[in-house]
Structure formats: structure tokens, C-alpha cells
Design a protein around this nucleic acid. Structure first.
Lengths: 229, 229
DNA sequence: TTTTTTTGATAGTATTACTATTATACATGA
DNA sequence: TCATGTATAATAGTAATACTATCAAAAAAA
């Protein structure tokens, strides 16, 4: 179908909205490709401008710097995943099954054959997010940027999942901690499987194993009645 | 006591061993302080050299670049934590209690009043590791550096913990995945509590809460008998 | 058509991430 | 004692990065 859903963000890590213009959309789609190819450290606006046949100065009119572009991509990803999970679980009445399905969608995000948004390659974006997303909040500006709303999308999504947990077990003490751990782990385990396999037991590209591990982690914790000291 | 244990690494992210000379030790201790103050992105060898009254060129004789210095610090941290956990659990016969104690040591690492190594402020190093450690393997060179042994210390420590898990439940399917998740989560939850509190339920500086969450996560998973689909 | 907005072309600056060279200080050992 | 080697400091220099500024041309909106 290629529905072309429009994902709008709650903050302005950009100077000009990139979805609105041809150049803006090229900046987004090509930056995803280039960051995947070069890694975020070696990615520059000059190289990006060359790829899209534009100039450094023009790219700077959309984003103050490459860090803010990454913030945009990561926020877009969380908003898109939130939408996606919500869509894929809306008809599931049982909260347990809903959370189970949510974990599947989170882990396999971007593996769909049919992308939701035309100019964004969700498979490549997923690789970029797995490799680079933690860099958006591991900076000295984290508190300022948090106040500016730069991490709202992830926070909202985490809260949305935490509410599912509380539906299953209203007395569970750590719904947010559990879900932020699962969100990070879903990326980590895929990254480890590919690059540092001795840090995991799951095999690269075998998403079912990661899903199984994450479900076990989640449900044993949520179902648990005893406290550990 | 300030025992001054010597931690030696299994690889050479350095050009000259920094522990061997006065300048080398100053590079280590002051880089920890400066990275904590400026963040890794704004940290440069020029600024470091200024702080220690030396020159950029001299620092470059010890480390090829700042990334390799971070690799050194992170590896040192894991080797030290491994030593520390091993030391604090060696007299505990019950594997369950041993793992429990290990989680406590991991979470509160560096909070000891009495540092083990004179020229390293373990409290500050712990903050640096929490904020920056994931950057060492999130690069395009991860596979090359992995082959060079740059991540051995973390991998060995993870394996050591995985063996504890298997002692408790030999049929547990994901001992490495679980322990790498716990290691990362121990940092993440502290970081979230301080900077992005809505991603967690634990409160900043309340280490007991993080410990309690991590123990629950670990033991419910390890004790579990059912499989989730 | 006129006006405004967006882009391209070009230039320039401060900082970063290095490399190279030489001189000096210091310790070792013959 | 001299001779040798090693570590460091001082200085200089380069290519790339991360921007900012200006102005004209093109495109879009009024």
C-alpha cells in the first residue's frame, strides 16, 4: 500500500520543517542512507550536500548541526513505532496479548516489506537507530534538550507501554524501568548479535530469538509476586 | 587502605602503557576528570594537555586518538569491576546469593569511599562510564576493534556472570543476553533517573531501587520454567 | 507581474585532529 | 666521567570539520 502516513513531532530540533520541501525530504532520506554507510561520526553536512547535489549552507538552513538532525531522525522513529504498535494492537482485547504483540513489533520494526512513508527506507532507518540512537541523549546538553521536548516521543511511547504493563499487573513497581530496559535491549541484542556475539545468546537476523528473550524477561517480571533483596 | 591494585588489560588501545610513567598516569586521571566535565564530544587532547601542563604531541604518544583513550578507560573499568565483584563474592557459597551480591556491586560501582587505585577517582570514572561507555562500540570500526580484543574485558565479565546464572539454572536459555542487558540497564537506569526521569521509576541516587529492580528482573527470569510465545 | 521565499555559489573563520622536527632534560650504564 | 637512549616540551604546519555571511538566481506565492 505505502500508505504515506504523516508523522509530526512535538518539538523543533529542525530550523525548517524538512517534510515540507523537496530538498528537506532529500536531506532526510539521504542522511539516513549516509549515516548508515559512514557511521554518525564520519557523516558530515558537506558529504550529505554532495550526495544530494546541494550545498552545505542549504543543509544548514534545515538543521543547526548533525546532532539535531539525529534527534529528528530518532524522534521520528519513536513516533512512527508508537503509531505502528498502536495500529497493530488496537483490536487485541487481552492486555497480555497486546503487550506480547507490541514486543514483536518493536523488535522487528522496519522489517516490513511495505514501508509506511515513501521517502524513508524504514529498514535502513532501523539499522541507524540500533547503532546510533543512544547518542542523542548521551551528551552534555541532555537536560536542556530534554526541557526543549527533544525526547518526548520516546518518553510517551515508554509510558504507553508502561500502562499496558499496569493493566496486566497494577501493583508492578517498575513499569517504566522495565519498558525502557526492553526498548534498549531490543536494539542492543540485535547489535550484539551482529557485532559482539559473545554478549548474547541470540543469533544475528533471528528476530524470533530476541522476541522470545524479551517476552520472557517482560512477563516473568510482570507476573512475579515475590520481592528480592 | 587504597590497596592500589594493578589492573592490566588484554589489548593495546594505547601506544605506550600509561600506568608506567608520571605523564601517563596524569593523562588517565585528568582525562577522566575532563571528560566528566566537558562530555566526550567537547573533550580534546589539546585541552587535556593544557590541564596537565603538557603538550598535545606528548599526549598523542600515549594514545592514537581520544576514541582509543575511551576504549582504554572503559576496558579498565570492566576489568576493575570484574576484579571487584570477584573479590566481594569469593566467600559466598550459594550461587543465588553470589549473583545477588554481584548485582549490588555492579550498580554501586565507584561509590566506595575507599578507592582501589590511587590516581583514579572511581566515583568520577563511574559517572563517565555511565554517560559515555556505549560510544566505544557504536562506531563503524566495531568489528575491527573487536578482533583487536578491545572489548574482551566486558565480554569476559559478561561470561563470568552468565556462568553464575547457569549455576542457578543450568537450562536457562539466555544467560549472556540477560547479563549484558543487566549490565547496560544498571547504567541506563542511573542515567535516566538523573536526566530523563520519566523513563524510569527509580529515583536519582537511590541505588537500592535500581538494585531491587535489577534483582527482580534477573531472578524472575532465571527462576522461570514456562516459555512465552 | 511583483514580491517573497528558497536555493546555489562562493568565501571565509575558528577549531579539531592530527604529523613532523628539533631541542632539552634526565636517567642508565660502561 | 662520558656516551647513549628515552621521554618530554616547544613549535610549526596541514587537512578537514563545523560552522557563518553575502549575494545572486530560481522558484513559488501573492
Amino acid at each position: 500500500m505505502a500508505t504515506n502516513v504523516h508523522i509530526s513531532l512535538k518539538h523543533h530540533s529542525y530550523l525548517r520543517e524538512p517534510e515540507q520541501t523537496e530538498l528537506g525530504r532529500k536531506i532526510i532520506s539521504e542522511s539516513i542512507r549516509l549515516i548508515d554507510e559512514l557511521g554518525f561520526e564520519d557523516f558530515t553536512f558537506k558529504k550529505l550536500a554532495n550526495e544530494i547535489g546541494s550545498t552545505e549552507a542549504s543543509v544548514y538552513r534545515y538543521f543547526e548541526n548533525k546532532h539535531k538532525l539525529l534527534v529528528y531522525l530518532v524522534s521520528w522513529y519513536w513516533a512512527w513505532l508508537h503509531y505502528s504498535v498502536n495500529f497493530q494492537t488496537q483490536n487485541i482485547a487481552d492486555p497480555r496479548k497486546r503487550l506480547s504483540r507490541a514486543i514483536e513489533v518493536i523488535t522487528t520494526a522496519g522489517q516490513d516489506d511495505d514501508p509506511m512513508v515513501v521517502h524513508i527506507d524504514e529498514r535502513v532507518l532501523h539499522r541507524v537507530i540500533v547503532a546510533e540512537s543512544s547518542k542523542v541523549y548521551h551528551t552534555k546538553e541532555v537536560d536542556t534538550e530534554n526541557k526543549a521536548g527533544y525526547f518526548l516521543e520516546m518518553k510517551h511511547f515508554c509510558h504507553y507501554l508502561a500502562l499496558m504493563v499496569l493493566e496486566i499487573n497494577p501493583s508492578f513497581k517498575y513499569p517504566h524501568a522495565l519498558m525502557s530496559t526492553v526498548l534498549e535491549a531490543a536494539h542492543q541484542q540485535l547489535y550484539y548479535a551482529r557485532h559482539l556475539p559473545s554478549l548474547t545468546d541470540v543469533v544475528a537476523n533471528r528476530y524470533e530469538e530476541t522476541i522470545c528473550f524479551l517476552k520472557q524477561l517482560t512477563f516473568t517480571a510482570v507476573d512475579n509476586k515475590t520481592t528480592y533483596h
